[in-house]
Design a protein around this nucleic acid. Structure first.
Lengths: 101, 101
DNA sequence: AGGTTTTGCTACACTTTTGGTAGCGTAGAT
DNA sequence: ATCTACGCTACCAAAAGTGTAGCAAAACCT
């Protein structure tokens, strides 16, 4: 036992926030540099602006995204998270090979 | 250029599937061993059985979860993904400290 | 065998979230 | 003044998720 209640654990906050549509994708799309609202939107398969705006607010509140002069960009933490996504990307490729030969 | 279209890339499949509610959480909750449907359900804050069932099917199709004698458990790939989540957990704690001191 | 429990899971009505389109208000360039 | 690009809001439709009740099958007891 001696575990903190789930809701207080940072990982739970992450699993919950990032387990929402477009959250991870947005970070993924920002990894190569800042993007403006509309550009980011079309990079994310044309996600609706209302949702995009909501996600951006959430990600800013979590400290992953910030407004820069070139549009929206990743913060230090955002970059760090993006790096984890790149590792996941490599993992995903191996996983995919295993799946379908 | 020379990038594959997004939809064909494994990472996109992952970002899309795991970017759904409870997907990551389910894997997280299964990391300590198999769990039966109802136990898993209450571990996941009482997620509704319809959604849980849908998620389990998806995760099984992706090859992360399988039916074992003790309930639902992680496959090799599932374990591997769970290991990544544990790393994310450690990362999340550092991130949390940075945020709120 | 008969009865109780436990199990995975479906059905259904309801709420929340997301999708899709139109377009406003501001700012800068012409 | 006009045009363009911008972030973003409003609106409604569609999809996804919630919450509760409960069924059918299997497992567990006498």
């Amino acid at each position: 036992m001696s575990k903190k209640p789930h809701k207080e654990r940072p990982i739970m906050l992450l699993l919950d926030s990032l387990g929402r549509r477009w959250s991870l994708r947005i970070i993924w799309e920002l990894q190569d540099g800042p993007a403006k609202f509309r550009a980011l939107r079309s990079a994310c398969d044309g996600v609706s602006p209302s949702v995009l705006n909501k996600r951006i607010s959430e990600l800013r509140k979590l400290g992953f995204v910030e407004k820069t002069d070139g549009g929206y960009g990743l913060t230090r933490d955002g970059e760090s998270l993006a790096e984890r996504l790149r590792k996941l990307d490599r993992w995903a490729r191996r996983w995919d090979k295993r799946r379908q030969g």
